[in-house]
Nucleic acid binder design. Structure first.
Lengths: 247, 247
DNA sequence: ATATCTTTTATTTTCGAAAATATTTGACAT
DNA sequence: ATGTCAAATATTTTCGAAAATAAAAGATAT
């Protein structure tokens, strides 16, 4: 095979790939990864409520899937800390607690602070422009949809913006841990503030953070990010009776 | 040598024999968690070498276990970052690289520094005494066994000592992430320094760290811990051709 | 010879039944 | 009523076979 043909083969999808794209399969390729994504979403969005027991017969009927991929997906979710497994007793959706939320927030602040510091130190022009780009996309989407719920697309862009801020840190492990905690925090957020109207100017906060990062002002960026996360957790604690009541 | 024997260059006792050896097997232990521990150990101790393909037929014969618990255990190990899964192509032992080792070390320093700072701030008398206790136990065991290999019991006590230092930090998530990285680092350690004679006074280093922690001198403790971890990684990089060669 | 298309083989993934374990129910005695 | 033990039920866990997919080998045509 000539070099040019080899290149073309890389660029041009094979017939099989085209066929696969045509067929509907937007989820994972195996049943296991498909059900994993589905369960993860349902847990993060609190359709599966904290503490709820996950019986195999129910899940099997609900998601129309066999036992093997189901167990494997739940195992992975257990490693993510989204479900808990008690041996011979089965899986449950991970419980929530005020102390857990505080711990998650504490670690998120540490990760995001460390991440943005390193990114400011190491980030190049591409990093700077990606901040501008993700801030722009975020600003173009209103937070609340027509139904008063937080817009799904906004959440996606919000996640992307905060990831961009730390994306030049150079530590894959940090980004991995950070993402795990972002998921955890997401669940708490959706647990209590589905309909809550916050007296808060998100866009201004995000713009401030982006400006500090672009100005390479580490201390300011860290301060603003920490305050951003603190405000969120304060609102959650104030809004949710269960979380604020617990000692 | 058969393919199966090649996978592990050690004859390993069967599941049944292991159960007999361990006088007390915790009741209600599943086959999945048993095989998980076994695989984890074999990976951490590099009997299953980095990058090796893990075929189900081989594993099934080697560990005398069915497919379901095996897949679940591998799934969990994948979440731990000890194996990688390529869908429809199977599992492999996670590869190693110089950059990964450096990232792991970087994050471990951050975690241990943060952890000991918090522990010094929050730790009570029980924490102080547990430091003394674990240091004492560590000092009573020589690092190298009669065969010149690092003693397994020493490794256990070494792990326990470093855990104790950060155990009063009050953040379960931090301890969780930290442990994951300790495992990862363990694998790199065993990859290259099985027989290496280090010109290094471990006991003195550990005593220094303990003293700084007990004196509630955060800066000193953090400095000593970082130096401790830096020294280890330097030795690993110097010892292992593969790791030091890679760009 | 090279590329493309089948056929064959190797391996992973999934399913449903069987085994193992926990939980509930019911009988019996105090 | 209450506690204990055995049987019955519910649920999880494990197994091996079947289906699905990828990789390798063979065949055909340009």
């Amino acid at each position: 095979m000539s070099r040019m043909e080899a290149l073309l083969n890389l660029v041009r999808p094979t017939q099989r790939e085209l066929a696969r794209q045509a067929n509907e399969e937007p989820k994972g390729r195996t049943r296991m990864s498909g059900i994993y994504e589905l369960l993860r979403r349902d847990i993060l969005e609190c359709r599966l409520k904290p503490g709820v027991r996950l019986r195999f017969e129910e899940l099997r009927a609900l998601y129309e899937i066999g036992l093997s991929p189901l167990r494997e997906a739940l195992m992975k979710l257990a490693s993510d800390g989204l479900v808990v497994l008690e041996e011979h007793k089965g899986f449950r959706v991970a419980p929530v607690s005020r102390s857990d939320l505080l711990d998650i927030t504490f670690m998120r602040k540490e990760f995001d602070a460390m991440g943005v510091r390193l990114s400011i130190e190491k980030g190049d022009d591409a990093w700077e422009s990606s901040i501008l780009a993700s801030l722009h996309e975020l600003s173009k989407k209103p937070k609340l949809g027509p139904d008063g719920l937080v817009d799904a697309e906004w959440e996606k862009r919000h996640r992307a913006f905060h990831l961009t801020l730390v994306s030049a840190c150079g530590s894959p492990w940090m980004l991995h841990f950070r993402e795990q905690l972002y998921d955890q925090a997401d669940r708490y957020r959706r647990l209590s503030v589905q309909y809550l109207r916050e007296p808060r100017d998100h866009l201004a906060e995000h713009r401030e953070i982006a400006e500090a990062a672009l100005a390479r002002d580490s201390d300011a960026a860290v301060f603003l990010i920490r305050r951003h996360l603190d405000r969120t957790v304060q609102i959650l604690l104030a809004a949710d009776g269960v979380l604020s009541a617990e000692l």
